[in-house]
Write a protein that binds this DNA or RNA. Structure first.
Length: 283
DNA sequence: CTCCAGGTTCCGG
DNA sequence: CCGGAACATGGA
């Protein structure tokens, strides 16, 4: 591919690109050549990793910001609790970073994530992008930006159900319309503390505590947010409450908030990705 | 065919 | 606050 001759370098210490893109926090990147093809906002992006350097067609600053290359991983690792489950997850996920996604596309994809496998979420994301998003390209590469809330707001529920969304179509449409009308302002959320921002997100249809925490973590840099999905719930019950009979969701929430600390979101993502990877290996 | 997937919402104890 | 049920779809 001729475009690869013009790639610019971005220093990237303590970073594993493939691990980060494959960890279930973002869903639209596709493997191409020795790297990945995707979109950041409206910019078509190719990025590949060679040792401790990323090579890309876009501005290095854009890449460094999106992949959160400024997050202090050594400090984050030191903050992790020292228990066997966490140690295994860290050994498996070293170099995985929590990235900074654009808020709306992160929110929208997690609204469509409920009771869906990661592969399905990616499939839905690509269908919505291809049908309703702007086509962007550089050289021979073509990608599709995620359609804005205003764009989705003008569609019908039938249009979205045709993307295999099922009951999630109503939620995505309802949220897009509330945001398009200005009833919820995703930019103003940045000024709020975690609890206030979470409460604001939960006003949207299809957004409960888990989805709100994913959005806080993956789009708002709230690295303490600890989403509890079926995988993490299993990990917590099996590895941290092994002896207990009845453990409620509230107990799990309280425990994880206190136990995993100021970078709990990182701990959560490492436990999540490790659990999911090792489970799929077995079967 | 059955089971499950990065849940949310509503409803009765 | 807690447990159950309904809600769509597709892969294993």
């Amino acid at each position: 591919m001729n475009f690869r001759a013009a790639l610019a370098p971005v220093p990237a210490l303590e970073f594993n690109l493939a691990l980060t893109l494959g960890s279930g926090q973002v869903f639209h990147w596709l493997a191409q050549d020795d790297g990945f093809l995707g979109v950041i906002g409206d910019a078509p992006v190719y990025v590949e990793q060679r040792a401790e350097t990323l090579w890309t067609n876009v501005a290095p600053d854009l890449i460094a910001h999106y992949f959160a290359l400024d997050h202090p991983l050594p400090e984050i690792y030191r903050s992790f609790p020292t228990d066997p489950a966490m140690a295994n997850a860290l050994a498996f996920c070293r170099g995985l970073r929590i990235i900074r996604q654009p808020a709306w596309e992160c929110l929208a994809t997690f609204i469509t994530s409920s009771m869906k496998q990661v592969a399905h979420i990616a499939q839905i994301s690509h269908t919505i992008r291809r049908r309703f998003g702007a086509r962007v390209s550089f050289g021979e590469n073509e990608s599709f930006a995620y359609p804005s809330a205003a764009r989705l707001a003008e569609l019908s529920e039938t249009d979205l159900r045709a993307c295999a969304l099922g009951y999630r179509a109503k939620n995505l449409l309802g949220s897009a319309r509330m945001i398009a009308r200005g009833e919820v302002n995703l930019e103003e959320l940045r000024a709020l503390n975690d609890d206030a921002a979470r409460a604001e997100l939960c006003r949207l249809p299809g957004v409960g505590e888990k989805v709100a925490n994913c959005v806080l973590l993956f789009a708002y840099e709230r690295v303490r947010a600890f989403p509890i999905d079926v995988w993490i719930e299993r990990v917590l019950r099996e590895r941290y409450f092994a002896k207990k009979r009845k453990v409620t969701l509230k107990q799990l929430r309280d425990f994880s908030r206190d136990y995993f600390g100021e970078f709990g979101g990182y701990a959560q993502q490492y436990l999540f990705h490790h659990a999911r990877s090792s489970r799929r290996q077995k079967s």
